[in-house]
Amino acid sequence: MASDTARDRLIVALDVPDAGQARALVERLGDSVSFYKLGMEIVYGGGLDLASRLVGEGKRVFLDLKLHDIPTTVERATAQIARIGATFLTVHAYPQTLAAAVAGKAGSSLKILGVTVMTSYDNADLAAAGYRSGVRETVERRALQTRDAGADGIILSAAEVAELRALVGADLLLVTPGIRPAGSDANDQKRIVTPGEAIRAGADYLVVGRPVTAAGDPRRAAEAIVEEIAAASAP
């Protein structure tokens, strides 16, 4: 990660219904963005072919599929994703799932990211789902399980980055969604921070969706975030 530029640390989420809309957005953003996240909606709308094309064009791709199934299925699915040339793949941070994904990516450059607690969840949401631990304890436990499984990083709210960086040191990549530039709508995110705050706290990569993709000038919005990342990264 240390060799990445500020632009490389911005991951724009292509949260649109189909590959055609995603392709148009990528073309509009041009060279202002080098890294894209494709989630379940776009993948089910032709996004795997788009992912392959983006990789072929020199872009980096984060497939946010949040895999969680029996180990054999996760291992085989991960191996398929590795063949596409994706940079990141998410799986839910359960020990069996993490271990299977690590096995599936063997021999490739794919990096496995464990999903700790969704950034749309708070303590009340976890309690309603039957968890006895709150967000912070759950995130910490899953971060350590991710590291112990040999995976590469975790997805977490930037609100927990500083504490998690102190816990895991430099061992894991910390990738943060729920990023909102100052003045942006929170939408359905509950644990959010600005790009500069996230970088200063120790985040490696920032995932940004609607503040870029729904902006009147998406390219300018992306450039402004890159500038903020660069400023926050400066010694």
Rank of each mutant, 00 (worst) to 15 (best):
V16G: 03
L67M: 14
A221Y: 05
V117H: 00
G202V: 02
M118Y: 03
V168W: 09
T90K: 02
D18E: 11
E57V: 10
T78K: 01
D64P: 02
R7L: 14
A82K: 09
P235C: 03
G107R: 10
L10T: 01
P195L: 08
A198V: 09
L25N: 04
A214Y: 08
A198I: 06
T73W: 04
G107P: 00
R53W: 11
P17S: 12
R53A: 15
G47A: 05
A77W: 01
A222L: 03
I155Y: 03
Y44C: 07
A203E: 05
R7E: 14
R136W: 13
A221E: 00
V212N: 02
I229G: 02
A166K: 06
S3N: 15
I179H: 03
A215S: 07
A186E: 12
P95G: 05
G209L: 11
A166F: 02
D188I: 12
Y205L: 12
A6Q: 12
A214P: 07
A82R: 05
G56D: 06
L167P: 00
L50E: 03
A127E: 07
L14V: 10
A93V: 02
A166T: 11
I84A: 07
M1R: 14
L144W: 14
G39I: 04
R23N: 05
R28S: 15
E27G: 11
L48D: 01
